[in-house]
Structures are given as C-alpha cells and as structure tokens.
Amino acid sequence: MSYSTDSPQDPETNVSSEFPFDLKLVSVEDAQMAYVDTGASVDSRHSNTTALFLHGNPTSSYLWRNIIPHVSEKVRCVAPDLVGMGASYKPSISYRFAEHAQFLGGFIDKVLPEGKVLNS
C-alpha cells in the first residue's frame, strides 16, 4: 500500500518532537499497556483495516509520532508501548522475546479482535 501527498515535503523540515496523541491503557496479563489508537480512518475503503506499529527494544510508540499522522488518513493506527517501555507497566520479568510476544498477543486479542491488520 502506498501513500502519497499532494505536494512533496522536505523530510528535514517536517519532523517534530511533539507527541500529538492521547495514550490509552488496556490490561493485559495483570499489566497495563499504554497505546496510541487513532480510531477509524476517514477513508471508507479501508474502514476495517488497522496498521499496527511495533517498536524495538528499548523504545516506545513515540518512535512513530511523525509517521502515524500520514497513515491515519487511510487506516486506523495502533501503536502499543511494549511492557516495561514507554508509559506501559514495568513488570518483574526477564523481558525476553517470548514474554513480549505473550503480552503482545494478549494486547492484539483485546484491542484488535477482528479485521485486517497491517504490520509495520
């Protein structure tokens, strides 16, 4: 899927440190996970499609602050803070891949129970 704008923009001047989103919380495996959710898109052709923005270790959904506004015009955008990162709860776990996968699976089951998911 490609996204275009009406006029080219200089990426060096279109970058902001602002985080223009309100974080939501969901309980997963006795931990609160924070996430961005833009809600439904304005593009009715993709109304049941969600772009899931995942970050690496260690960072947070803040990483996607300059990307989500462009994609949210087309699809719903969801960007979780993995447990122990960003605004999410910091449980006493080893933070191995398998544990993150378990929390992320629970997150997806609760926040994205149906519909098409685009993973970025």
Rank of each mutant, 00 (worst) to 15 (best):
P91H: 08
P8I: 07
G84A: 09
L82K: 08
S92R: 15
D22R: 13
E114G: 02
V71H: 04
I108T: 01
L82R: 07
R65M: 01
V28N: 01
N48P: 00
T50R: 07
K90R: 15
S88F: 04
A101E: 14
G56L: 06
Q9P: 00
G56F: 03
L112S: 05
P69G: 06
Q9M: 10
S16F: 10
A98S: 12
K110H: 11
T49K: 11
P91S: 08
Y35D: 02
K24G: 02
P58C: 10
I67D: 01
Q9F: 11
E18C: 03
D10S: 09
S72I: 04
K24P: 00
Y95N: 06
K90C: 08
I68Y: 04
P8W: 13
F103L: 05
S2E: 14
D10A: 06
H55F: 01
I68G: 02
V111M: 06
E99C: 05
M33N: 02
L52V: 04
K110Y: 06
F21A: 09
L112D: 05
L63F: 15
E12K: 15
M1N: 08
K90G: 05
A101Y: 10
V71E: 05
L112Y: 06
E18P: 00
H70G: 07
T49N: 08
N48T: 10
S16Q: 09
P113E: 05
E29D: 14
H70D: 11
F19N: 04
V117H: 03
K74I: 04
P20L: 07
F107H: 03
S4Q: 14
E73R: 15
